[in-house]
Design a binder for these strands. Sequence first.
DNA 1: AGCAGGATGAGTCCCGTT
DNA 2: AACGGGACTCATCCTGCT
Length: 549
Amino acid sequence: MDGNASGEEYENIDWNTDDELEIQNITPSSHSTLATLNAQTIVSNGEASSSSGPSNSNLFQHFLGMGFSEQSIAKAIKENGEANTESILESLLTYSVLEVEDSPDELNSCHLNSPQQQEQQQCVENGELSSDYDESLCDDLSESDDSSWSGGSEVANNTSSLPKHEKSLLSLANMGYSIEEASAAMERCGPEASIVELTDFICAAQMAKTEDVFFEEEKPKLPLRVNGDFKKRKLYDLEIWKTKKRKGILSEEDEGLRLPNPMIGFGVPTDTHVITHRVLPDAAIGPPFFYYENVALAPKGVWDTISRFLYDVEPEFVDSKYFCAAARKRGIRKALEKWGDNPPVHVQKFVLEQCRKWNLVWVGKNKVAPLEPDEVEMLLGFPRNHTRGGGISRTDRYKSLGNSFQVDTVAYHLSVLKDKFPNGINMLSLFSGIGGAEVALHRLGIPLKNVVSVEISEANRDIVRSWWEQTNQKGNLIHLADVQQLNGDRLEQFMGSFGGFDLIVGGSPCNNLAGSNRVSRDGLEGEHSSLFYDYFRILDIVKCIMNNK
DNA sequence: AGCAGGATGAGTCCCGTT
DNA sequence: AACGGGACTCATCCTGCT
């Protein structure tokens, strides 16, 4: 998935920049949104590769697509100059914070209104990253208006005599998009699409394009011309597969679930080919709703089994790198050796590859280091110091974080629940870890009424408990240690007291599924990973109890 | 204790070649 | 269609240090 950064694209990087500057530019600011960081990473790097610098209109469109108003962008560019996108963005964010304080009513950027889109959880909000436990800083995802994906620009509406689609076209053109972009977006999103949806689409397409250009060298032996052949090859493979299927000569293995490439399943905000609808088997439909997670690259057949147990719901494969600036959750404790003042291109390339691969950040001249635990916390969407409580060691913080959800990704998926449960939710959280699901719901602004959280690690339970207290949760948190001890009687007892669970969330252990396990990659029947069956068992009991009511 | 570093190497997928 | 090399992975265990 992750390609390698090109060496030549970085020839213009100043390798002798003073440390302070490097740090300022790269260390994530606690005030930025995740998605902004993400976009910034892609775009600003891309721009760094260009000797001529960004053109004004591209720059303008880039920020427009991120949802800032034309006036703000013009002002920010005037203040900072064209060259420094980082400081422009910072100014824009500052403006938007000021605007937020002035007019709180305009905060809600959850803009997806059509039923089928709500069905398909398109609403990604990127809340401010809280810098500590202060509740005022731990913002809801629903209360941020500078979401990159929300495309919040207001459209002047004095064209009421035109047909709807022409009105939209005109509006988009007025916003600085080309007619081609606008009509492509309208074709893709349908005639009923709102301006915000259309700008979202265009923004996503632009970002995808930027990324393609930026990572072009990911396929070093594939010049553009050959790309066409590559696509033909894929088409050919598909035809072969279809022929086989028609003739009924597909083996069991061929029928197995395949990983999408790129890893975007039913859709991410930046994808231009989003599947907007899926049908769930009757048996799977909630309440209780459920959400199950595990590693994508499990041994063959594991996902088929999981899917079969979980009422034949087709799994969605998604790589959290589409939601998070970190390509990998775990940093390594490896610093690179020092280079001379003018490293050759291949050395530059090597260093950048390593940084990308291992999430290294610049900490000084010619020095890189792995992410600190609090930086990992931030990238994963947790409040700063989330894992610090209970005297947990640095190594254990890395470990807990490494096993956790990426909060923004989960929030994206669970955002469909927001309208369904305005008064709050009762959740059964299995294998809670450090509470990724809890934090995601909280940041979505879904009140947590009763949470039964099952987690084997005492340190992790302490973490969730102290998060619960420090965010002044109004609901009840009930902690249990072992999913294997959670039986029907106990569940019935809980459900009797507060009337059933609305949502069951869990990611069972991946130890025996993960490819990096050299010792005991024993599959779904492995010592730890077999706990998946407890997830199913508990889910099924809850479903039975609720259906018999 | 805690930490850092290193060795380990199965299973799968991708892609190019034959 | 078959084959082989390369790349990847929510990891685990061991050693040696502070």
